[in-house]
Design a protein around this nucleic acid. Structure first.
Lengths: 151, 151
DNA sequence: CTCAGATAGTGCGATATCGAACCAAATGGA
DNA sequence: TCCATTTGGTTCGATATCGCACTATCTGAG
């Protein structure tokens, strides 16, 4: 591995870091006070994937520590955007259900993002993005597997 | 914009968020106690780009609020990895210089990452990554410009 | 030169992130 | 069945992030 290649990989992760930073900030200024990107992301996941996930499933989906997810869910519950109910199949566990208020919150946020998507669609048409996705997903899966494999 | 396209853009930013999360964690478990990814990123930037940047330049490079950069630099300075000197061209400002210890720290971190790069190079050869970079950079620049343009 | 506004950086308070330690429930091998 | 181990979740404490407000300095119009 020569220095040039190494630099390339650094630049890749650096771009990802900056993109995360920009897109998160972009979303957060459009959310009501007291709510941040992870709140939206969880609501979105509950709708896009499915309701009734356990906290641990959510933590794994976003690759965050479970204590972080506990905290995020507490914020959502306090805001009445989700309900936590016991998991009938496992006494240790809970299941997270999105409320009507949660759906409204998510839909409003999406509506507030539509100017972004409009502008984005001009510079990055859906088929362009669709071409980028497989490699990004492959990279994410690779990195995920790697945690166990590398020293 | 139909729902399918919207979902596509969400998935894009979601992948970016998860990738950031995984790669940051991957790095941080390999850094000495008390240091985190932003510390490494700043040191790396000072070497890759150039020494003697101002805190504000660094904040802009990483798209973080300047108070966050103040905090990160304080950590680096406390650890003896950078030196902050007054900026002779502007009495309000400072310039950040990396120390010998800072260079060693960065080189050690890179050495600890080499197993990752080795594994990565198999699944994602440099030319594959090189193909991904321009679109990611273009997206980052687009998002950056967008902050002013959209509602 | 003057001063109103812009800019660089910091202090502070509120909240987020996350590792360590912990509890309770589930699992599975003897 | 029993109990050692694993697993889901929370609590707690340390540190990070970031918006707001502030100071010091610079800049430019007049």
């Amino acid at each position: 591995m020569d220095e040039h290649d190494q630099t390339l990989y650094f630049r890749l992760f650096n771009e990802i870091g900056i993109l995360e930073q920009i897109s998160r900030t972009f979303l957060e200024v459009r959310l009501p006070d007291g709510f941040i990107a992870p709140h939206f992301a969880v609501l979105n996941h509950l709708i896009r994937v499915k309701d009734g996930r356990t906290p641990l499933e959510l933590a794994r989906a976003f690759q965050v520590p479970k204590t972080t997810m506990t905290h995020t869910l507490a914020g959502l519950e306090k805001g009445g955007l989700v309900e936590m109910k016991p998991n009938p199949e496992d006494g240790r566990s809970k299941r997270v259900w999105i409320t009507h208020a949660g759906r409204s919150f998510r839909n409003r946020a999406i509506a507030d993002l539509s100017p972004l998507f409009g502008a984005l669609a001009e510079a990055f048409p859906p088929d362009t993005v669709a071409q980028m996705m497989p490699e990004l997903e492959r990279l994410r899966i690779f990195m995920d597997d790697l945690r166990d494999r590398v020293s």
